[in-house]
Design a protein around this nucleic acid. Structure first.
Length: 580
RNA sequence: GCGCUCGUAGCUCAGCAGGAUAGAGCAUCGGUUUCCUAAACCGAAGGUCGCAGGUUCGAGUCCUGCCGGGCGCGCCA
């Protein structure tokens, strides 16, 4: 539609201008409106209404829309033909995999860097947003048909590991003989204990420093202990990924250790290109446009005065690897907003080094902070960081209490399964539903509410449809047969039409969410859809509908269920139980 | 000081390269259940979109200044 109206503008006015087709502001105007004519008219210095008339005359939309009309200062209003809606719905019906949504014509290789926990510590709420927003972006790009390479840039290297290795050796003298026998039950306590010892005992601190050196030299004993710590840590965070239904796998890990032996080379390359220079003893690149407090050029420090490398160096090495080894033509970083300047500088240095061309997409997708009810960063009552595991468990427990209350007849296993889907889904959905740029206030009560834009509301809508399907046989309705033999799509009730119009809009919601890395566009759409379904459900009986209406209503139910399931399950990684 | 970001209903938030009368949910008030899950649906009320200018046919959206919150700004990540 966008394309056709743009073509009509081209034909009528001789200029390239976007039609700017949007859902109509008010249904009394129609279903869609084209806003682009006024801008085009301004550009041409002509009367917008006149131009709109000309564009309408040049438009070829008979198969899609009723006769378009010009309104207001130069809007073109469009009302979808029932025949077009019917055709689109049938198209969705026939496409069992993708609901009629095409893949991109220009697939790219897209690296998505997300989650990136520091594996010396337990995952806490601070890791949640990067992990799930990044996962959604990866899923969206994959669905669009791109080649997605997930990269979990875990913090598995650096000075703190010297301390941990020394501590583990001291606690478990036999670790080298039988590493498998050593389990770290509580990562957080392990880290804290090691740190305390390091702070208080200078002899131990010296050992820790020695282990850092051995680590850099890949000393076999030290490496064995290091590997064990990484392995132990993975056993703590992989279950959290599984619980969150996040698609990251161990093979997506490309942590700091992976780049450790590539850092010196990065510095050499930047020096050789004349970009890296010494300043106050450190090796720095000074990208244009960055200033410090005193208005002086701000350095991107890639080697400290003591010769050590920093995370800037690691990020450069990782970016180079992704561009040249992984052959990425897009690299998307999903981290909190505080690192915005770091990434701007990183990208600037990559451009200075000639690593990217104009086609390469480097993107920092940032997000705000999770706040507590008091409006301050989310903490435990005593002020500590909230462990992700604890947060998710509490969500599941609260959900379980609700299931228990609302649907006590279900079996224990069903309740457990539903509580998990609802609890975890609620936490994820609440995050996705917010504009990621904003800080947002975390509230179990709100995210677990059955009203409003929440996971449970969506899951409930889905469960109601599945319930209809279960009841069908008892009422001697063969859904499959009616859908297969559907004679015509008959949309008579306003609730049916509204639902149908929303269903055919799914592709646009996905496109908008993908283009701007904004999962909340998707949740917003899904909520609209679920609301439209609830209205339809209230107003239009399905199983007891008259024979000429029933196939269409079954189709609307089926497509709504498939769309909700696809959106929640495939794109957001939120489970949709069959009943709740 | 400079930069980024946010400021929309009592509360929590949407608002998709400017578009018609700014939308939800919660809370408040009122209504709907012999009928496929009422965990739902319908309605009412609630707004100088932080403030002031500007750009134009049109600004919550763009520009400038100011106010307020958060974050960042040379050897942490």
């Amino acid at each position: 539609m966008e394309h056709r109206i743009s073509a009509a503008i081209q034909a009528a006015a001789g200029i390239q201008a976007p039609a700017l087709v949007r859902p109509a502001a008010d249904t009394k105007f129609g279903d869609y409106q084209a806003n682009g004519i006024m801008a085009a008219a301004k550009h041409l210095k002509t009367n917008p209404r006149q131009l709109a008339e000309q564009v309408v005359a040049a438009m070829d939309v008979d198969d899609v829309s009723e006769q378009p009309n010009v309104a207001g200062p130069g809007f073109i209003n469009l009302r979808l033909k029932d025949s077009f809606l019917a055709e689109r719905l049938m198209g969705m019906h026939r496409d069992t995999d993708r609901l009629g949504i095409d893949k991109t014509e220009t697939p790219r290789s897209v690296v998505v860097d997300y989650s990136g926990p520091n594996i010396a510590k337990q995952m806490h709420v601070g890791h949640l947003r990067s992990t799930i927003i990044g996962d959604c972006i990866a899923r969206l790009y994959e669905f669009a048909g791109h080649r997605v390479i997930r990269q979990n840039h875990i913090g598995d290297w650096g000075t703190q590991f010297g301390m941990l290795i020394a501590y583990l050796k001291e606690q478990y003298p036999h670790i080298l003989e039988n590493p498998a026998s050593v389990h770290i039950a509580d990562l957080e306590a392990f880290y804290q204990n090691a740190k305390r010892l390091s702070d208080e005992n200078s002899a131990f601190a010296a050992k820790a420093r020695q282990e850092v050196v051995r680590l850099h030299n890949h000393h076999p004993d030290t490496m064995a202990v290091w590997k064990h710590i990484v392995e132990q840590s993975r056993q703590h965070y992989q279950p959290i990924y599984d619980m969150l239904n996040v698609t990251l796998k161990p093979e997506d890990e490309r942590g700091e250790s992976f780049y450790a032996d590539k850092l010196a080379n990065v510095v050499e390359e930047l020096k050789a290109k004349g970009l890296a220079v010494e300043s106050d003893g450190a090796i720095c690149v000074f990208p244009e446009g960055f200033k410090n407090k005193d208005g002086q050029p701000l350095p991107f420090i890639i080697q400290k005065s003591d010769g050590a490398f920093l995370y800037a160096t690691t990020d450069l090495a990782a970016l180079r690897y992704r561009l040249f080894e992984l052959k990425a033509d897009a690299v998307i970083y999903v981290t909190d907003a505080r690192q915005a300047m770091h990434f701007q500088m990183l990208f600037a240095v990559a451009r200075m080094a000639g690593w990217v061309n104009t086609e390469t997409l480097l993107e920092h997708v940032s997000f705000g902070t999770m706040l507590g009810a008091d409006g301050k960063p989310f903490k435990t009552r005593s002020g500590g960081t909230v462990k992700l595991k604890d947060l998710l468990q509490e969500a599941v427990e609260r959900a379980k209490a609700v299931v228990e209350q609302k649907n006590p007849a279900l079996s224990a296993e069903q309740k457990e399964k539903i509580a998990r889907a609802v609890g975890i889904g609620a936490v994820k959905y609440a995050d996705y539903a917010n504009n990621r740029n904003s800080d947002y206030v975390f509230s179990f009560d709100r995210m677990l509410a059955m009203d409003g834009n929440t996971a449970p509301y969506m899951q409930y809508a889905y469960a109601r449809i599945k319930s209809i399907e279960r009841k069908a046989a008892g009422k001697e309705v063969d859904i499959q047969q009616e859908l297969d033999g559907i004679p015509t799509v008959l949309l008579t009730e306003p609730e049916e039409k509204e639902l149908a119009k929303l269903l055919v809009r799914y592709d646009q919601a996905i496109a908008a969410a993908t283009a701007e890395y904004r999962p909340n566009y998707l949740t917003g759409y899904l909520y609209d859809l679920a609301q439209a379904f609830s209205r339809f459900y209230t107003a239009c009986p399905v199983l007891t509908a008259e024979p000429q209406h029933r196939p269409t209503r079954l189709l609307l139910c089926d497509l709504t269920a498939r769309t909700i399931r696809h959106g929640l399950s495939e794109l957001l990684g939120i489970e949709v139980p069959e009943q709740m």
